[in-house]
Nucleic acid binder design. Structure first.
Lengths: 206, 206
DNA sequence: ATATGCGTACAGACCTGTCTGTTTCTCGGA
DNA sequence: TCCGAGAAACAGACAGGTCTGTACGCATAT
């Protein structure tokens, strides 16, 4: 991967107005996301991706340049999907920070309990790639900062003494949920997250 | 790795009473632990391990059988080191569950803040290997169960209404700390863990 | 005609695990 | 005390496979 990347001639840029073009790109990214998440990034070769996506390897490299960039695109999509879900829930609870937080923990707990859940993709990729400058690592770092920011927004509306402190504690809790899936009994996650969050908020109000 | 493992003839067993023999084994394991943790398991080949350890590849395979077994031995050693540290701290606080918990969170927070910290090895390996039957995954799963058990012991001594529930919450918190190192400002981890644990305990007492 | 796609072959590197051959060390018996 | 057997170490080549990324030929569509 990074150590093996070559500096050869890049393929020419593509025309983003082409519908079929976007369709091929989407098929590659869909397949890559599925395989990367289910099996781990380093365990999945580009040959497998192109075979399952039904595209040519040239197309993959035309659209994504290197495998490292494809990994970054994978995390970027996961990031977008995550916040899209989150913001949908947020917008359903205007002016009700406590209700919003409960709803956020609900779907997170549900997701963690799925049979095919294999941890947070951002954390998993960070575990696989030690280089902090890896393009995917930058996406992952931004994602975790964003989580803390979103939680700070909620904490602001909760009327606690030190909202940033609570946001940090809640982020630990949620990240802990992400990585503890297989140490938890089925369905245990949601209740545990809810109860812990309730305790942290209560204590923060005094 | 698992898919590539062959069923060839095994080398004969070794004599465990031999001092030089144990020394070679230790050199291999020391080197493997260092490299696996710093760079990730899949990124480190056995050729690199034998080169850095200054041993022959035959020795590695004589002692560990396969790379997968070496990975499991890596996690086993990390597990032993972790509990050795933990139990030392525990034994320094007999009959004082609250003091012990604070002390445990202190050294964990300090460890997480180190410059070369790269997450919990057990969690990292679980992220790299999707197969739940992988020998290293079994070690990791046992480690996480043990964490919850140790926390349950502490919670028992804390006089809370539902100690098992608190232990689960604390395990989420600690695992969250393990994976949140690079989203935290330097030195922030310990205070955040301590404050959150205090809140969870307080709430559990009512 | 140009851009994009598919399919396939290829280069060069790396991977795990095995094999061969030599060296070093210990230990039991003459 | 010397000798030979056996265990285990070292060194390095090798097999067979996988990896990323490039190149080449041909089809298609605008």
């Amino acid at each position: 991967m990074p150590s093996r990347a070559k500096v050869g001639v890049r393929l020419p840029p593509v025309n983003p107005d082409d519908a079929g073009h976007a369709e091929v790109r989407a098929r590659i990214l869909d397949t890559a996301c599925r395989l990367f998440y289910a099996r781990g990034v380093r365990a999945v070769g580009v040959d497998l991706i192109v075979a399952e996506a039904g595209v040519a390897k040239t197309s993959l490299y035309r659209h994504f340049g290197t495998k490292d960039d494809l990994v970054a695109a994978f995390l970027k999509r996961e990031d977008e999907d995550f916040w899209s879900h989150w913001d949908g829930v947020r917008d359903a609870h205007p002016g009700d920070a406590l209700g919003e937080l409960k709803a956020q923990l609900d779907w997170i707990g549900e997701r963690v309990a799925r049979a095919d859940y294999r941890g947070c993709p951002q954390i998993n990729v960070a575990a696989e790639f030690p280089e902090r400058e890896h393009p995917a690592r930058k996406v992952a770092a931004a994602h975790k900062r964003a989580l803390r920011d979103r939680l700070a927004e909620i904490a602001q509306g909760l009327g606690v003494a030190r909202p940033d402190e609570l946001a940090g504690q809640l982020s630990l809790l949620i990240n802990g949920g992400f990585v503890s899936a297989d140490a938890l009994k089925p369905g245990e996650a949601t209740a545990m997250l809810q109860a812990a969050a309730r305790s942290l908020i209560e204590a923060g109000r005094r």
